[in-house]
Design a protein around this nucleic acid. Sequence first.
DNA 1: TCGGTTGCGTTATATTATAACATTACCTGT
DNA 2: ACAGGTAATGTTATAATATAACGCAACCGA
Lengths: 166, 166
Amino acid sequence: MVATKVKGCFPSPHHDHHSCVAAALASAEAHCTANSLRLTELRRQVLELIWASHRPVGAYTLLEQISGNGRKAAPPTIYRTLSFLLEHGLIHRIASLNAYIGCSHSGDDHTARFFICDQCGEAAEVDGTVIDEAISKDAQRLGFRIGKQTVEVAGVCAECDSGRDK
Amino acid sequence: MVATKVKGCFPSPHHDHHSCVAAALASAEAHCTANSLRLTELRRQVLELIWASHRPVGAYTLLEQISGNGRKAAPPTIYRTLSFLLEHGLIHRIASLNAYIGCSHSGDDHTARFFICDQCGEAAEVDGTVIDEAISKDAQRLGFRIGKQTVEVAGVCAECDSGRDK
DNA sequence: TCGGTTGCGTTATATTATAACATTACCTGT
DNA sequence: ACAGGTAATGTTATAATATAACGCAACCGA
């Protein structure tokens, strides 16, 4: 069972999620070590909470969770932690949901595209060479120098769509 | 001078903006008439304020503006109005900015893609057949049924980019 | 003009996010 | 081990964005 594939996909409901989390954490750790970044207890904890599912999760949900953990935390705590994780490419922010999700390619400074299921809430990050080219093409026509991209496609995933007419 | 082109573009700094507004308002009016929708004074006013520029504008900015206009308004007023305009395709919401911008193709139930300049703040809505195909392609691969799309590319527009090294 | 529906006013509050400053933990050089 | 600086976290307050709930008023069709 593989956690992620080359071009991105929705996780099977039967996938070995522990290995997703393990891989993500290991990758994050490696990236931090390589770049002299401190993956503190708090940061690791939050990253792990984010990876608890493949669903984007809100800042205040995370805040409650780390507060429950014997710690009491205020908003800046979680937002600072999220900033760190975002800044170093360990997570992504889903603007259309004001929520955060683990990055499947930790550390790479790639731009991410997401397909997000309205029904199960899961999100698939795709390595969008095709989409990327299309955007570049339009940008070129406009003489536009591309910065940060936000590509979030809501809809219904294959899993939910098939269960629909049972 | 033309307000909008077929595939979308950044407005020239010298374009005749009055004609943009006039066209947008006329188009909105036509759409509302055709669909038995009530483009009330408030709605028209807000739409006009949104069209005051080609920059996405925040809800509370609009709120201040309609409040200044002899009226005093609370948040629900502006949000209800924005909901109406969004629902009927007269404006778009820019998720990455929590802001709103006039729709160049009023009434069509098209999905919009935006290029947004970080420097001047202007946004160009493009009719993204190319981007659309790319997204459809990935969606098909995933077995994903596409719903609402959010495609917002930040960066620097040609105008600002050229002025940059003066 | 009656009566229902839609739009708007108003009050209160939820949700998401940041500013500013204090304190603690950590690392570095000695 | 310790001093001193830097980075991380705690804490308090508040900003910015958005919605719930309820009542009144305007509009419109019969």
